[in-house]
Nucleic acid binder design. Sequence first.
DNA 1: TAATCATTTCGATGATTCTCGAAATATAGG
DNA 2: CCTATATTTCGAGAATCATCGAAATGATTA
Lengths: 118, 118
Amino acid sequence: MRENDFDIAAMFRALGDPTRLRIFDFLRSCCCLVAVEETGAVRPVVGPTVGEVCCHVTGAESITSTVSHHLKELRLSGLITVERRGKNMLCGVNRAALTALAEYLAQSANAETGGDCC
Amino acid sequence: MRENDFDIAAMFRALGDPTRLRIFDFLRSCCCLVAVEETGAVRPVVGPTVGEVCCHVTGAESITSTVSHHLKELRLSGLITVERRGKNMLCGVNRAALTALAEYLAQSANAETGGDCC
DNA sequence: TAATCATTTCGATGATTCTCGAAATATAGG
DNA sequence: CCTATATTTCGAGAATCATCGAAATGATTA
């Protein structure tokens, strides 16, 4: 029943930018297997490279610093993972983060918190 | 199976600000009954006033324009409803908006979209 | 109608943020 | 070791945003 250590506001904020939301939509639509290590760390096994994300989102053939910046923000919020695989960087969504967000919303749907009522 | 007309990015963005998230948390913790009209419109039946929200969030005894601004943004994104009740304005969460967000997240959890895979 | 209460709008200021191009870093291959 | 490839960091400009106090609006009460 641990309140997981995700920063809910930071994740919402990361998804609040239209460009980042499109990046995230592409990542989750792309088959992104992840491996959960003993430490609990999650790392992508396979997923699109930064260049592929860039291509899908901007249509450009080369990598833009803008997409790199957005990926960094998504990663810092915990929503995605990025790890080097040879020459490339592979991206994948962090399912645990999605679960945390879903739980937050479910919490509000039920209003179970029973907080200070007026 | 209608793609509801909520702007997902706008809702995420609205929840991305810490102050707004606290406002929203208070609103959903507060017993906020809503009535759904025939038109599909949702309006709060009972809920905290702007002044009460202000008190809970800022601790101040008077209404601040900052909270009013944040409430407006939450309302424009569709997350909450605000309606006049006599001298006061009553706030309530829009359950339909929460459902839309939850569905969006579930969608990504299942990766049902089957979008362009790499 | 005057006065009061509740809330929003206006105007301004400082801080973030999104975006872009150029330079820097890191890895692989010859 | 040198070059090519993939990606990030740096620096900057324009835009947006959060916050605040003051003024304006809307509704109730006297």
